[in-house]
Amino acid sequence: MAEAHNEMKPGSWELDTSNIFNYIDSFIQRCFDMLDVCNCMIIFGRIDELEKINKPVFAGARGDHFEAKCDQIEHMFGDALDTVKAVAHTILDVQAPSWYDDILSFRTIIKDIETIIENLIESVFEGVNHVEEAVIALYSLHNYSKRKNLRRIFKKKTAEVWLMFSDEVQEAKKDMVSTRSQHPADLPSFSGRAVVLRMRKNRLLYLKKIMNDASVWLMPCSNSEDVVMHVNRLTGAIDVAIRELWISWTHNLDEKCGAGLNRTLDAQKYAARRPPRMQH
């Protein structure tokens, strides 16, 4: 606006731009401060007008301890939020310098909360033994992943979950080779081996479904596509192995057995051969 006026009448608008824009920049910064407070209300206080955010729930022997930590986080944030509410009249008043000390105190508490959450995440994952537990743990802590400063540790833990899945795929592949000729003692040789292979396939498909369902909220991971590709290849190889076992079984049948299997049962003859029922 000043440039437009000065083009028509040079020197007509002599403005102290630094003083004017200092107030504007200060007001904009305070708006960003309030956005940060509101985001913290959603993440650490579970205070959201649009949706209900459930409390984190943990299983296992230390579940109560972890839930108590989450309660502690909420109480710490509640106290910090009360401090902000007490000085609400100064937040958008750019001529009130006390707000800078107030927001600094608030952010110091938020930094302490973030440190507690990082330690909590590490403690939760110490008791994780398989993929299902890891996914459940991440889901319980998922609301904290919305905080920018905590995304790094959540990305790290997400990568660890996919690595656990990848390790299980590799273990299944090794077992297919090392236990190729083994089968449960209470099952025949061919069908027993086929049952074991089918169980491995079902396990992989189950884990794949868990990870696929979790992709709605789970953070992206660079090696996820490679793991899924290996799962698809291995399940395909299991199908081929089961088919080969069936072919080998049918080739080992003698002609009399095959003829018997292809013959339908005569109901009357079968009934005549059954022993008579005992009369009481």
Rank of each mutant, 00 (worst) to 15 (best):
S215K: 02
D186K: 06
K201E: 08
L265T: 13
M219A: 06
W249D: 13
E255K: 14
Y270S: 13
R243C: 05
M229F: 10
A271D: 10
W162L: 05
D266R: 04
L163K: 15
D167A: 09
A194P: 02
G236Q: 07
H251V: 10
S181F: 07
N262Q: 13
Q170P: 01
S166W: 01
W249V: 06
Q268V: 15
V231M: 04
V177S: 03
R193S: 03
N202H: 12
P188T: 01
E244V: 01
L245T: 08
T235S: 03
W217Y: 07
K256C: 00
T264C: 14
W249Q: 14
S224T: 01
M176F: 02
A271G: 08
Q182M: 12
P276V: 04
D226G: 01
R273G: 13
V195S: 10
M199P: 06
P220Y: 04
W246T: 12
D167E: 14
V216M: 09
A271S: 11
I247E: 13
K209L: 13
L253Q: 08
E168F: 12
E244W: 07
S178V: 14
H183P: 03
A272R: 04
Y270R: 12
E225M: 05
R193C: 03
D266G: 02
M278G: 15
I238K: 03
W217G: 07
D266V: 07
K201C: 05
S215D: 09
V216Y: 09
I210V: 14
A272C: 09
M278R: 14
L207F: 05
W217N: 00
R203A: 10
T235Q: 00
W217D: 05
S191L: 13
T264A: 15
A267Y: 09
L234D: 06
D175L: 13
W162P: 10
N223S: 06
F165T: 01
S166Y: 02
G192W: 02
L197S: 00
M211R: 00
N232W: 08
N262T: 14
N252C: 08
N262E: 13
H230A: 09
A271N: 09
P220R: 01
P276G: 00
A272V: 11
V196I: 07
D239N: 04
G192S: 07
V216G: 03
S248M: 08
W162F: 05
R198T: 03
L197V: 02
P275M: 11
T264S: 15
R274K: 11
S215M: 05
G236P: 10
L205I: 10
V240E: 11
M219P: 06
G236H: 09
M278I: 15
S189E: 10
A272T: 09
D186W: 07
K209V: 08
R274E: 11
D226V: 06
V169T: 02
L205K: 04
L265C: 12
A241D: 01
R180Y: 03
E255F: 14
R277D: 11
M229S: 12
G260N: 15
D175A: 13
V231S: 00
N223R: 06
M199F: 08
E171P: 02
